[in-house]
Write a protein that binds this DNA or RNA. Structure first.
Lengths: 138, 138
DNA sequence: TTAATATCCTACCAAATTGGTAGGGAAAAT
DNA sequence: ATTTTCCCTACCAATTTGGTAGGATATTAA
């Protein structure tokens, strides 16, 4: 399951996506609008900035805004930045790979199944973007 | 990611699947063979039993064994018993549903995307079984 | 050049979860 | 009655999660 932090990140990003192209948005506005604890949100947005998804501006008129269009930010990227691996096992992760001890990977059936599951999940998460979240048809 | 406990469960179940139809297997055999801490394994197997995946026999000649054929135990079931929800959000889970506060589910785009992701993942995890783990082709 | 406005950074903290261990109880077989 | 084996309850340390506190730094405006 995604952490609460990741859910906050999605809500904040969705809000910024809705206001894409309208200049910087205050952390406090997002916090109020989306009911996310201010100081917690602060470091979430900062992490997203360091991951190059957001840009920020200090001082009056400052705030956060998407660095690229909502159509170019897919859900897998967001999850990886805030939540970590998408695969169900470390030995199957593309971005957070870790070898498992006591397991011959080339013959491990568990690994093979989890790889198939990962690919199925990724196919969706890498295709869907912030834009899809906003304009999800009813 | 799946917990270490869940990975132990899969390893143990795979072992029992390999020995399906050959009578009870000792916890201690599985523990030795698969390098799983004995006491920890004890309660994993017990949970699997309570979930109706295993049967047990006490006393000499006792042990654990699969209740049904390896082809009838799919990976989603195992994950749900030991690890919990498969969906990425509680409000999207079929078996562990929880309403999210501050969110109109019928219009929530995040929810819609996570539902699609869940279905893609489940399609694999509910189709693949212990049998597939054992006989995964190279 | 000073004050105001916002983000950024470091450090801390409580509660929950994870990954176990300890020790004995209960049932079955001999 | 004894041995074998699973079953049950309780505990525990380490890690992760979900925050909070307080000030440092950059930008703007007067």
């Amino acid at each position: 399951m995604l952490s609460k932090k990741t859910r906050y990140a999605f809500r904040a990003l969705a809000y910024l996506a809705e206001n894409y192209g309208e200049g910087p948005i205050l952390i406090s506005s997002i916090s109020n609008e989306k009911k996310i604890p201010l100081k917690f949100l602060e470091n979430i947005l900062n992490e997203l900035k360091k991951a190059d998804l957001l840009e920020s501006k200090k001082g009056k008129g400052g705030g956060y805004f998407l660095k690229v269009s909502p159509k170019k930010i897919n859900l897998a990227t967001v999850i990886r930045v805030i939540n970590g691996p998408i695969a169900l096992l470390p030995c199957v992760s593309l971005n957070f790979y870790e070898k498992c001890d006591d397991c011959d990977e080339t013959h491990c059936g568990i690994r093979k199944m989890m790889t198939i599951a990962r690919d199925a999940t990724l196919k969706i998460l890498e295709k869907k973007t912030l834009h899809d979240i906003i304009f999800a048809t009813v």
